[in-house]
Amino acid sequence: MHKIDMRDEESLLAHNRELAEEINKKLKERGIRSIDVMGAIGSGKTTILEKLSERLKGSYRIGALAGDLTTTIDADRIARHGAKTFQISTGKECHLDAHFISHAVDEVADEIDLLFIENVGNLICPADFPLGADQRMVVISVTEGPYMVKKHPYIFAEADVAVINKRDLAEAMEVSVEDLEADIKEISPDTRVVRMCARAGEGIDELIKALGL
């Protein structure tokens, strides 16, 4: 019997992280700022990107990559607000990985200077697959209940900005926005928290500020 050490072989996750670093470098070299948007299905990611595109289209050439699993619904919605959109079809994959982004970036790089990536709608898998964006933003909404932060601590730990959306429904849902914010701050004191009602456009200015745009 022979024991063969394989520690030096590159693992899939490590490979993805390296690729993510390359993507980040490539984006920076071309002067493109990039934001990875994560959050459960229905939390309001696309709505927020629509509002951001509308508000920022005078100042940036915006691109959006929508990681919707199979449809172009999200990409189409964002495109209506003046962003150049690129659909990435992930098929059955549960996460976007850096490979998807790498190809897309080559395609769009000359046409934009701000890139949003709408990640697929789950908070578990994307945490293992960073995409190389400058900033990570997580969107949760009060309709997902009071334990969203406690159940997914790492994603908040790594988030630069966290949005608590649908605060208009907080009372009906009997979910405390203050408690959610306190949960985030406990895990990650440096994460900037923005409370929003995205559908009405409330909190967009605060979000733009939190993202430094």
């Binding site: 022979h2 024991k3 050490d5 394989m6 520690r7 072989e9 693992s11 996750l13 490590a14």
Partner: peptide, 27 residues
């Protein structure tokens, strides 16, 4: 996910986010 000492600072992950083959045993 809070600093065990100061309870305040931001944490950087150094280890624990990989899944690797450490070795195989072959004939």
């Amino acid at each position: 996910f809070t600093c065990p000492w100061c309870k305040k600072g931001s944490l950087t992950i150094l280890e624990g986010r990989d899944c690797i083959v450490s070795s195989i045993e072959i004939l």
